[in-house]
Deep mutational scan, measured.
Amino acid sequence: NITNLCPFDEVFNATRFASVYAWNRKRISNCVADYSVLYNFAPFFAFKCYGVSPTKLNDLCFTNVYADSFVIRGNEVSQIAPGQTGNIADYNYKLPDDFTGCVIAWNSNKLDSKVGGNYNYLYRLFRKSNLKPFERDISTEIYQAGNKPCNGVAGFNCYFPLRSYGFRPTYGVGHQPYRVVVLSFELLHAPATVCGPKKST
C-alpha cells in the first residue's frame, strides 16, 4: 500500500531547467500520482495528452512514469508532439509516433530571460542525422557541412553544433522561453508502482 505522493513538484518547480539538447529525465516510481494538482495549476500554456485522457489519469496505474524537462522557445512547443519535424524534434528531443503521455508547457519569461540576454539555454542546430525517439545527444563535436574534414576547428563550413537562445524579456511570445515537462507513461508486464489516488488503496 503506497502512500507517499509522487515528487512532481520537484520537477515542475525546479529552480533551473535543462537546455533542450541535454534534456533532463527523472524516473518516478513507487508513489501516488495526483495529476489533478498539475491539471489545476493555472499558468499552463499547453497540457496535451496522447493515448490517454488527462482527466482519467487519476484512475490509472503505470509501471513507471518518466518526467523529461527542458526549455525551448514558445514557437517550438508545437514540435513536442508525435510525428513532428523541425530543429527541436529532429536534433534535440524526439517523441515516438506511438507516444503515451502528456506534454505540459508554460511561459517562463520572468524566470529564464535576462536584460542583455540569458545565454545559458542551448539547443542543437546541426546534426548529421535525426534523433531516434528519446535519444539524447550531448556531443559538442564540430559539425562538418562541406567535404573538408574540420579536425575539431570551427570555421568555413565547420560549425559548433550548439546555439544559444539568448532570451531577453522584451522578445515577442514566440521567442520567449517556455518550460516543458513531458510525462511518459510506461506500461510493462510488471507490477504497477505509480497509481492515481483512487487506485492506491
Rank of each mutant, 00 (worst) to 15 (best):
V173C: 08
L188Y: 14
N130D: 10
R27M: 08
A18V: 05
Y39P: 07
Y35L: 15
G51P: 00
P133M: 02
C158T: 06
N92V: 02
L5K: 14
V32M: 09
S200P: 13
G196P: 13
A22I: 04
P54I: 15
V37F: 15
F47W: 15
P54T: 09
N64S: 12
A81L: 03
G51K: 09
Q84I: 06
F45I: 10
Y165A: 04
S53I: 08
V32D: 07
P43A: 07
K48N: 12
N30P: 06
Y50S: 01
T15Q: 08
F12N: 01
D97C: 06
A190P: 12
D34A: 03
A46K: 15
Y119S: 14
T201E: 15
N107V: 04
P43S: 07
T3C: 05
K94V: 01
D68S: 02
A14H: 05
P177T: 03
Q79S: 05
F47N: 01
F44K: 12
Y21K: 03
I104D: 00
A67H: 01
A154D: 15
R124E: 04
S108I: 04
H189F: 08
I28G: 03
A67K: 01
R179A: 03
P197S: 15
N92H: 02
L125P: 15
A81V: 03
W106Y: 10
R163E: 13
P161T: 07
A192T: 13
A81F: 01
A145G: 13
Y121Q: 09
A46S: 14
V115Q: 14
G172W: 08
V180D: 00
C49I: 00
N92K: 02
L5E: 12
C49F: 01
C61K: 14
L122D: 11
P54W: 15
I104Q: 00
K148C: 09
L60W: 05
Y21S: 04
Y93E: 02
S69C: 04
N147K: 13
P133F: 04
Y21V: 06
V71E: 02
Y39G: 12
L188T: 15
Y159I: 11
P133Q: 04
C49Q: 00
Y93G: 01
S129L: 06
L131H: 02
Y178W: 09
A154T: 14
F99W: 10
E141M: 08
Y121H: 11
V37L: 13
L188F: 11
P82W: 00
C158R: 06
Y165K: 04
L125Y: 14
I142D: 07
R127T: 03
G174P: 09
D9A: 14
K110E: 15
P54V: 13
L60V: 10
V194L: 10
A105R: 02
F8G: 03
F44R: 10
A105N: 04
Y93S: 02
L95Q: 00
V180R: 00
V65A: 08
I80M: 02
T193N: 13
Y50V: 02
Y39M: 15
E10W: 03
R163V: 12
R168F: 10
G152F: 07
G155K: 11
F41I: 09
F45R: 14
A192F: 12
G155C: 07
L187T: 15
V173N: 11
A42K: 11
Y165N: 05
A42L: 08
R73P: 10
N109I: 06
T100L: 12
N87F: 13
S78P: 12
S200L: 13
R127P: 03
S113T: 10
Q144L: 06
S129V: 11
G101C: 01
Y21N: 04
G174V: 08
K110A: 12
A105M: 06
N24M: 05
K148D: 12
A14W: 00
L5T: 12
I104C: 05
L183C: 03
V11R: 02
A89T: 06
P43E: 08
A67V: 10
V194H: 11
F17I: 03
S139A: 09
K26R: 13
G116R: 10
C31I: 04
G172S: 15
Q84Y: 03
K128V: 08
R163I: 09
N151H: 12
D97P: 10
R168Y: 10
G101R: 00
R16T: 15
D34L: 08
G116V: 08
R163F: 08
V20P: 08
C195S: 11
S108V: 04
N64G: 10
Q79W: 00
K132T: 09
K148Q: 13
C6N: 06
L95S: 00
A46G: 09
A22F: 06
L131A: 03
N40F: 05
T193D: 13
G74Y: 04
F44G: 13
G196L: 10
F44T: 09
T201Q: 14
R73W: 03
D68W: 03
C150D: 06
N1D: 09
G174H: 13
D68F: 01
P133Y: 04
L162Y: 03
Q84D: 03
C158V: 04
H175E: 15
P169K: 08
N58T: 08
K199G: 14
F17E: 04
C49H: 00
V65H: 01
Q144K: 10
C61A: 12
N58S: 10
V32H: 10
Q144E: 13
F8L: 12
Y119F: 12
K199A: 15
D59M: 07
A46Q: 15
S69M: 05
S108G: 05
I88S: 03
A46T: 15
R168E: 15
T100K: 12
V52W: 03
Y39K: 15
K48G: 03
N64F: 08
V115C: 08
Y123E: 06
V11H: 03
T15F: 00
T100D: 01
N120H: 10
C195D: 12
V71S: 01
Y50G: 01
